Amino acid sequence: MIIDRRFIDPNPFDAEQGDPIALVPADLTHLPARTARRPSRRLAVPGTAAGAVRWHTWGLDVAVDEWRTQRAEGTWSRRWRPEKDVRAAEVERLNGVLSVRASPSLLRHWAVYVAMMGDDVYEGMSYTELDGPRWELCRSDGEVQTFHDYHRRVSVARISRRGVPATENTSGEPAELRPLIWSRNDTVRSRRRQRPLSTPA
């Protein structure tokens, strides 16, 4: 299953467009880098959908409630057991596609981790890692982050990105642009805070 760019915003740090995301069940298939190149090119520019698959998450609410109850009772650590099947689990970028691949059981655990992120928020931000048990890690690890002020961050990063080429002599390469955009974000935020509020006439 691929989540294409129609559903993916620019990131909240430097407004770079996010990659399509491929969710790959490891027990059924894999996504070679050469194969990932084709959907990456096809999805480079958002277009009309040829079809859609509705992703149902039957049982997710029940699983989240169960984990929350166990954590509240202090029994989670005693009942939890590490996943047996973390073979071929990986989170990596393949030719412009972010591949999230794991066994169905591990994907279910990751879904619960992501669903519970709102339970532990620090200064408006929460995150969770996508990996296997610490003693049997995935080949590559990923992370999901959320921000309470996500839309504001994206807006600031977009303004910073538009302003950098006009004020800096850059080649436009991402590795060169990113630090300039990051440093400009603070200036944009400061200007927004100092902007006087308009009053109705």
Rank of each mutant, 00 (worst) to 15 (best):
I2C: 03
R5G: 01
R6M: 05
R6P: 03
F7N: 12
I8F: 05
I8C: 04
P10I: 13
N11I: 07
N11W: 06
F13V: 13
E16T: 13
G18V: 02
P20K: 02
V24F: 07
L28C: 13
L28W: 12
R34W: 13
T35I: 15
A44H: 10
A49N: 08
A50G: 15
A50S: 14
A52N: 08
W55G: 01
T57E: 14
A63F: 04
E66G: 02
T69W: 10
T69C: 10
T75Y: 03
T75S: 11
W80R: 13
W80Q: 10
E83V: 13
K84T: 10
D85S: 09
R87E: 08
A89S: 12
V91Y: 00
E92N: 06
L94Y: 09
S99M: 05
V100K: 00
R101C: 00
P104Q: 11
S105K: 09
S105C: 07
L106Q: 02
H109D: 12
W110A: 01
M117V: 04
G118F: 10
Y122D: 13
E123L: 08
S126T: 15
Y127A: 13
T128Y: 05
T128K: 03
L130C: 08
D131W: 01
R134T: 15
R134G: 15
W135H: 14
C138V: 05
R139Q: 13
G142T: 05
V144P: 01
Q145K: 12
H148D: 15
D149Y: 06
R152T: 12
V156G: 01
R162G: 04
R162P: 03
G163H: 05
V164E: 04
V164K: 00
V164I: 11
P165E: 12
P165H: 12
E168A: 06
G172F: 08
E176A: 14
E176K: 14
P179L: 03
I181T: 00
I181C: 00
N185F: 01
T187V: 06
S190F: 04
R191Q: 11
R193I: 08
L197N: 08
L197C: 09
L197A: 12
S198H: 09
T199P: 02
A201D: 14
